[in-house]
Design a protein around this nucleic acid. Sequence first.
DNA 1: AGTTAAAGGTGGTCTGACCACTATAGAACG
DNA 2: CGTTCTATAGTGGTCAGACCACCTTTAACT
Lengths: 211, 211
Amino acid sequence: MPTSPKRKVYHGVLQEIREFIEKNNLLPGDKLPSERDLADTLQAGRSSVREALRAMELLGLIVTKQGEGTFLSNYRPYQTVELLSSFILQENSTKNDLMLTKKVLEKEAAKLAFSRINEEEVKDLKLILANSEWKQSEKHVAFFTYVFERTENLLLVKIWQLMEDFSRAMINIYYKDSFYRELIQLYITRSYLSIEALFEHYTTSETDGRK
Amino acid sequence: MPTSPKRKVYHGVLQEIREFIEKNNLLPGDKLPSERDLADTLQAGRSSVREALRAMELLGLIVTKQGEGTFLSNYRPYQTVELLSSFILQENSTKNDLMLTKKVLEKEAAKLAFSRINEEEVKDLKLILANSEWKQSEKHVAFFTYVFERTENLLLVKIWQLMEDFSRAMINIYYKDSFYRELIQLYITRSYLSIEALFEHYTTSETDGRK
DNA sequence: AGTTAAAGGTGGTCTGACCACTATAGAACG
DNA sequence: CGTTCTATAGTGGTCAGACCACCTTTAACT
């Protein structure tokens, strides 16, 4: 029996839209034809067109505004990463994996922020720690949220936030109080190389396989 | 005027499916409820359910077989990558975020694998490098896939794979040939502390993503 | 018991019908 | 003339129902 490919309609629609964008040289912000137009032009049902568009929207390739239309968007993988990560996180993470991965990200963020953080911002970090209104776990989140923002790496921020959200559902993870103070101290004394050691010192536990 | 969030139905369906998977502890290969069942259970139209499923399919999270059903898949985002690569506008900021995040993960994996890797496995790494059938970029993937498996941290593996797939859609990233050799050497000589320096040395300034 | 045909379940697709929202043309007003 | 308001048309959002193609299961037949 000849196994014809038999691609689904929405795949074809996807391809057509792609070609349309290329042919008309559409740029982010430009408007796509309406769903009804596309369905008519491509000789497909509107529902099939929508399946393709919805998938594109979920990936962040387009944005839709009710009553206005569908617009090409400036693609960034962050949205996709966020979506996929949410599945990855729920499906296979053990507590240990999660804690260790989170630690790794926090450590690297601390190092990346090193060269980008100034005295004024170090003061902000101190203020976070001094805020007695917050619980320890809240301080941890606020502290590292600030640090991660300094890395100027939106992708890193997104991944960490997801893991933070997820881990909070299972357990509150934070370091000893002195840890944060010492990290600030390293920022002040410009001791980049000690950051790695600081993390190792405060987190060597059963989760870390290294000997 | 109260601006209600007004999330679209297919977003809700997506979340419900995610929760269903978690609650029932579904594993790759397991069957999801039929589209009609889902529509009925979630009180949504079948077309809305399909929009969510189609998006998941495009992401490679599920596979659908006509006449049989919808099944949870072992996440392999190749299809996504292929699709996205034709839409992606290569933004430098995005690329930099990706490359840096990937590097961080690879470095930490290399360190985590340190204590878990034995002589036999070091030999395997050498074999990967020696395989002349592969392109450099393929060697990179094979090499680090092996390293990541040694970390015994499934979450780390998944996140790295995600980064790897995305970066591959934009640009092939790998290190100089000598980098891999030197890393192996560090495994042999048990020089844990030099791993960090090795990565810093080979990845300072611009990243080399040559073909 | 083995084979075959019918029935039911599932995804794939289309159509038509509403709804909610937005932009716009044209009427009404000052 | 210009402004404001309003009816209308266009757009995405959603649903229900109807087929089709395909697969599995069941039942009937030999």
